[in-house]
Amino acid sequence: MADTPYIALLNGLKAVSQENVVVVGLSHIVDEQKLDTMLCELGQYPAIYYNEDLQAFDTRLLMFSLQLAIETNVQIDSYAMAVEKLSNTPLQKI
């Protein structure tokens, strides 16, 4: 993963079959109220960032950003970085 993090990120996303994806980190327990807030916000905006351990994205936006990272060899190390660097959609921070 260290040499090609975007490949690992794309492989992780391939299993998603829903319209939206919530990304949860492992360093903190996610409060259900925060998760509900994220899901509500995601209904209004395609890229939501709460903190490094909780983000939500429209799956198509995320796949587009990761594919572009691979095609252009842009170095990224997170889904949030892919969307910020490679899409026209800024992260909505809550």
Rank of each mutant, 00 (worst) to 15 (best):
M1I: 04
T4E: 08
P5E: 07
P5Q: 05
Y6D: 09
I7R: 09
I7N: 01
I7E: 03
I7Q: 04
I7H: 11
A8E: 09
N11A: 06
G12K: 15
L13W: 12
A15C: 06
V16C: 15
V16S: 14
S17Y: 02
E19W: 00
E19M: 07
N20T: 15
V21A: 11
V23F: 05
V23M: 05
V24N: 01
V24Q: 06
L26A: 03
L26I: 12
S27A: 08
S27Q: 09
H28L: 13
V30C: 03
D31V: 00
E32N: 12
Q33F: 07
L35H: 07
D36G: 11
D36M: 07
D36S: 13
T37R: 06
M38A: 13
L39R: 15
C40P: 01
C40K: 14
E41N: 14
E41R: 14
L42I: 10
L42W: 13
L42G: 00
G43P: 05
G43F: 10
Q44L: 15
Q44W: 06
P46I: 02
A47S: 07
A47R: 03
A47C: 03
Y50C: 06
Y50K: 08
E52K: 12
E52L: 06
E52R: 14
E52H: 08
D53I: 00
D53A: 03
L54D: 00
A56D: 11
A56Q: 10
D58M: 13
D58W: 12
L62F: 04
M63D: 03
F64P: 00
F64S: 00
F64E: 04
Q67F: 10
L68Y: 10
A69W: 01
I70S: 15
E71M: 07
E71I: 01
E71F: 03
E71Q: 10
T72A: 03
N73T: 14
V74D: 06
I76K: 08
I76A: 10
S78C: 10
S78E: 05
S78T: 11
Y79C: 05
Y79P: 04
A80T: 08
A80H: 01
M81N: 11
M81S: 15
A82M: 01
E84N: 11
K85H: 08
L86H: 02
L86C: 04
S87P: 06
N88T: 14
T89F: 00
P90Y: 09
P90H: 04
Q92A: 08
K93A: 01
I94F: 11
I94G: 15
